[in-house]
Design a protein around this nucleic acid. Sequence first.
DNA 1: GATGAATGAGCTTTCATTCAT
DNA 2: TATGAATGAAAGCTCATTCAT
Lengths: 204, 204, 204, 204
Amino acid sequence: MLTVNAFQKRQRDKDTLRQQIMDAARDLFVEQGYENVSMRKIADRIDYSPTAIYLHFKDKSELLKSICTATFTGLASALEGISAKLHSGKHDPVELLKKGLHIYVEFGLAHPNHYQLTFLSHNDDLRHEDPICIQAFAYLMEGVDACIAAGRFSSNHAQEISQALWSAVHGVTSLLIQHSAFPFVARKRLVSRVIDSMVRGLEA
Amino acid sequence: MLTVNAFQKRQRDKDTLRQQIMDAARDLFVEQGYENVSMRKIADRIDYSPTAIYLHFKDKSELLKSICTATFTGLASALEGISAKLHSGKHDPVELLKKGLHIYVEFGLAHPNHYQLTFLSHNDDLRHEDPICIQAFAYLMEGVDACIAAGRFSSNHAQEISQALWSAVHGVTSLLIQHSAFPFVARKRLVSRVIDSMVRGLEA
Amino acid sequence: MLTVNAFQKRQRDKDTLRQQIMDAARDLFVEQGYENVSMRKIADRIDYSPTAIYLHFKDKSELLKSICTATFTGLASALEGISAKLHSGKHDPVELLKKGLHIYVEFGLAHPNHYQLTFLSHNDDLRHEDPICIQAFAYLMEGVDACIAAGRFSSNHAQEISQALWSAVHGVTSLLIQHSAFPFVARKRLVSRVIDSMVRGLEA
Amino acid sequence: MLTVNAFQKRQRDKDTLRQQIMDAARDLFVEQGYENVSMRKIADRIDYSPTAIYLHFKDKSELLKSICTATFTGLASALEGISAKLHSGKHDPVELLKKGLHIYVEFGLAHPNHYQLTFLSHNDDLRHEDPICIQAFAYLMEGVDACIAAGRFSSNHAQEISQALWSAVHGVTSLLIQHSAFPFVARKRLVSRVIDSMVRGLEA
DNA sequence: GATGAATGAGCTTTCATTCAT
DNA sequence: TATGAATGAAAGCTCATTCAT
């Protein structure tokens, strides 16, 4: 009993309590759905009282908001490297774009809970004004702009193309996450097929 | 009061109560989320007592299930015509496939509540065993098979291609429905761009 | 289907519906407790609509009352024979009294549902004013009176003795019915032991 | 209002809330029947919210169980003294047995609500496995064993005799409690008559 | 005599949240 | 920083009962 307790306390010192709450909450939200997760359940999982959560988050919805923002931050940072390479001018822009799209899908599949909660939930309020969300989409536009600038695409409507690409990668990511019971072909093949077809179809 | 009552009664005779319940429930489920809609709210909206709902549906989850099945039925019937033309052999299979993909998206955008509730909710249980759901996906496969048979595609992995196409159309449909605050380009253009690029990218 | 229906209808003609309702209700009341039995459950068991019950009984409590009165009638008629013998003067009054007590217990054990519902439920309202109830207790008093008149008992407080005997037989009957999980000795032996001991203890 | 509040608060500090809930619940259960008592009614009576009850009892049935166990504990402790005297060997075992039977009845009449709820309700589930219940019956057996060992009874079937005695005292207790409208003779006389007759009838 | 449709009232239980400590 | 005690509100669901037919 004491050992367990001691271990937990050490855990607590390592991560901040705030982080622990967010991790537990995100897992539970996706496992059981936001509405089906009570503050008590979250508190139980991290061995604190429900009241403790209110010391770190105003209410349940703010907890959700915080989790989503953190997700966008993670995604943006995953895409940062691509943006850097792009600016260096040493790489093929189409290949970089495809690489970026793969990173997007991989991020979603690697963090299905984050993705689902952020992109697939009843949560319209906050997203598009959040600067970090805008930033994430901006990276995609950059890639498309570069391809257009290099004369690689048959169209020069950057907005339209970017949104079409986002549609495709969002589609495959969300289907794979949400409909896990469906008999999909191997993930890698499916994802590549989507990205390759889209980009090939756009090329000049 | 009496006038309202008289009007309502006329309404009631026209649609069956069962249908009224489903319509009200679907709207509310999408507006507020399944978990946030109480049986009482549904009943209030149609001016019946909560008990009346239980005369037509065993419980809340059965109500949801019924709504989803009805959606798939609608979608399948929207695609039926394409299937018929395909079997006639008188039409270009690639054009038919694209037409079918457009119908899918249009169905989703025309019935955003149906689409969202059926494809975008925490509702994994039932979908893929439902025969009408299987039927809907079968229509898509038919179209792809025809293109492959006609030597129009550079790959002959029908499953893979079908799933990739579904990913793309699902992606654009769900983004347009769910993120209505985002500054998308004109819907027609975006949808066409997604479908055209995907199919073009697949062609031989 | 039709056969079953036809058979049921024949049944219905034989017993009156009123009787069917009472039988079904009594069984259910004891199986599940008065409060846990809904009018719908009763109706379902006899394949009628709930409304049909209201054509025969004003409400649920009147249904209960009717069942209890019927039980007392049955008990009184079971004891009638003893009363007759007593008046004939040809039999030993102590033996007749014991015989009557046995009949009481046997009636209870043979109709545990009736007994439980009538004597062991939350049902204080009606009992002691009901003439048939008074009649049943009168039979017991008769037997005690006869024993006293014959000088066979050491006390002549007929009321007191009757009530003591009732206590004893009620006690054994209700324990056997209600605590069926308890490891009682053989019923016959227990019942005889109670009656024999009581009567022997009362004798001069 | 404030005065009432202040008074209530003092009350609350005195008894634990847990005890208050049990007391209120037991009274209500007997007054109105377990099934007719809602958690709200219990809460109202002690001036707490319904939720407060759930802080102390998992659900309604656990509340009932706790009350019954408490009753058995009270009964067992009332009988403890007799058991002690018995083991001392300084007292007449038949007198002790009768004394014990009187204590049983007196306990029931002094706590009619406890008795009724525990022994006279639809509540078969738990009783006979509860160790405190077993203990209570064991005390009775002890008394009977001692009488048999002293050669005071004409039979040596301890189980049978104990159960017969329990039947008798349970009978008189439950009749007096449950049929309070019946014109019983003086309680003392009736109880003594039952116990004396039974024991006398058992003696050698 | 019998029913189908409907309801108002009520149930047990859970929730997000607060407040004194 | 963290908690234990408490609550108002609301949830899903069932019930006895009525009424037009």
